[in-house]
Write a protein that binds this DNA or RNA. Structure first.
Lengths: 204, 204
DNA sequence: TTATTTAAGAAACCAAAAGTTTCTTATTGA
DNA sequence: TCAATAAGAAACTTTTGGTTTCTTAAATAA
């Protein structure tokens, strides 16, 4: 009988997988090297040799998943709608999908809990995705302006980010985001807001 | 020299105080009975006799503070504005203030981290405050309808809760919520959204 | 194929900190 | 003043995270 002994990337994949499972069930606070080793069916020294802290391991595990699922990022989408509403629906639906897959554990585990230095690392990640989100909205707005649906594309970043942040909130609270929320967002919030900017009353 | 030895409510207050301090600095993950005992200047058995887990203690400590600061709840506010916009500003500003005081630690510490059963307890708390929030918005909308500013008060709870949830999101991410966000919310989001409902185009 | 290198896994060990028990004594109030 | 209650000190147990050592499987090259 040949004792099978995994090593290299194969072993690493198993460790990442185990890490993500613990992250999902117990959060970052419950992630310890001994637990990971047990869950991955390997030994503690293997983990300690590779990573300095559970936090670093968690980042690696999440990035591994993002890399694996990195087909169809919100960034490089081709918009095909023929109205502001259609384009917005495309952006938001795509966002919800990516959120409900890898985003689920990624966002949920990484907020709160993080003390001092760790917070900055997460801030970086959020900032990056914010850039992508804003970029997507900008393109949608430009298309809408070309069509003549809106009269300006000059909106604050706060406004542009609001829909994404609101959806993320619901990920925090472990709710499942359904089509109803997306529809509400697009039809009752975003479209009116963007159209409203062209109107008269701009109070200071 | 008389050895002073606290007991009863006096002692309990000190324990709650210490609990909140640890909660604020290290989060729920860092809250342990020995630490609380040390911080409160008492002994471990005192804590162990009263609470079953750090989580239960944390709930008690936060509720204690809520009870103490329970003057001026969003619920029983008398609205004095003479427009939909004014009333909305009052609601949201009050929310931000309460959020920036006890809400700060309360919300920040309790999301994520929570595994299974704990999540449901928190959901309860959030649900309760949601009820209050919706109630406040309802009253604002009724007043606006009476004034003739809007034609209906029939909006989904999702829509009514959106502003509160968006603000809470920013509390999560440890940002400070300024007047700019409140103004954006009221002028560029809420007022247009509520007014929009009366308009023609209601797509399915 | 065999020798050599690399790295995984088992097991024993250490240290720190959470949790428990016992006993003493201050405080309250009958 | 005495009895009942509850706080605090201290010793102890248990758990668990982290480290070290050694054995041996797997990969690589001679």
């Amino acid at each position: 009988m040949t004792k099978t002994r995994r090593r290299g990337v194969e072993l690493e994949k198993a460790i990442f997988q185990a890490t993500r499972e613990i992250l999902a069930t117990e959060g970052l606070a419950g992630l310890t090297f001994p637990k990971v080793a047990a869950a991955a069916g390997t030994s503690k020294p293997v983990i300690y040799r590779r990573w300095k802290s559970p936090f670093e391991l968690s980042l690696a595990a999440v990035q591994d998943q993002i890399k694996a699922e990195n087909n169809g990022r919100t960034d490089e989408v081709v918009f095909t709608g023929d109205s502001l509403r259609e384009d917005l629906m495309q952006v938001m639906k795509r966002f919800v999908i990516s959120m409900n897959t890898f985003g689920q554990s990624y966002v949920t585990t990484f907020f709160s809990v993080l003390n001092q230095e760790q917070g900055t690392v997460i801030s970086k990640i959020v900032e990056e995705s914010s850039t992508i989100d804003i970029h997507a909205i900008d393109r949608v707005l430009e298309r809408a302006q070309t069509r003549g649906e809106i009269t300006t594309t000059a909106f604050s970043n706060d406004l542009k980010l609001l829909p994404f942040e609101w959806l993320r909130y619901h990920v925090f609270t472990r709710e499942t985001i359904g089509d109803d929320k997306v529809k509400l967002l697009v039809d009752d919030i975003l479209v009116p807001a963007y159209r409203h900017a062209g109107s008269a009353s701009e109070k200071a």
